[in-house]
Amino acid sequence: MSIHRPSKQFFGLRKPVGRRQRLLSALGIWIVFFGVWVFAAAAGLVNELLVPAPQQVFATTFDLFYGRGFASDVLISISRVLGAFAMACAVAVPLGVMMGSFPAIEAIFAPFVSAWRYLPAPSFIPILLMWFGTGEAPKLALLFIGVIFFLITLVMDHTKHVREELVETALTLGANRGTVVMKVIFPAVLPNIVVAMRQMLAMAWTYLVIAEIVASSTGIGAMMMRARRFLKTDEILSGIIVIGVLGLLFDLLFAALHRWAFPYLRKV
């Protein structure tokens, strides 16, 4: 006797998609993308000087790393992002937590911080160049300015959302203000701080590329600007791909950190 199963629709309305289907779908869209690109390049539909074939871009990427020391540019870019980002976090996390915990501290800093958020960081590039010259300092400063004010605000908002009952429970257990902040508010908000850092790191990459394109002789952005001068579109596209892959890697790294550091958030 056969059991009648209701047939499963491929486009089920608001039905969750299985792991296999999701994987194949994700692969599919990229295959289509590269397929169109390969076809367009091979068929001569695009100017090969402006749009080199993907296989050529990958070959160039390989050559850049193994033949022309591109790795050192990549390392410089990474260290710029991480250096500036670490400095921004070192200020923004404690300050944001304090602002979210003590309205008096928020009253002091919030008017200052929120004003800065409306100033686009790249608008500081000319003055930063005049102040700091062309070394590492102006790049780090741009990333710092670009990230810190948003990060402070995010951390503060998350901190404010720590439930009042948790704070009151700690108080009725005999905790003083300092203990409440350190032992309850901070651990309660920490997972959200890591999420905010993950979002802001992506933003730091954006500012890095701007800084390196505008004023640098080293780093991924500088390599791309050099390539532009010699009409090396394949190298420019290599740069874009490397930046994308790095962004993705750091995002995955943060996701892994989140999973590892907060095992109690895993769904059972």
Binding site: L166, L173, Y264
Partner: peptide, 18 residues
């Protein structure tokens, strides 16, 4: 003010999840 001589249990869950 609050102190440890008066412990309180709330309706909402207050376990420290971490």
């Amino acid at each position: 003010g609050p102190a440890r001589d008066r412990g309180m249990v709330f309706q909402a869950y207050t376990s420290f999840d971490w």
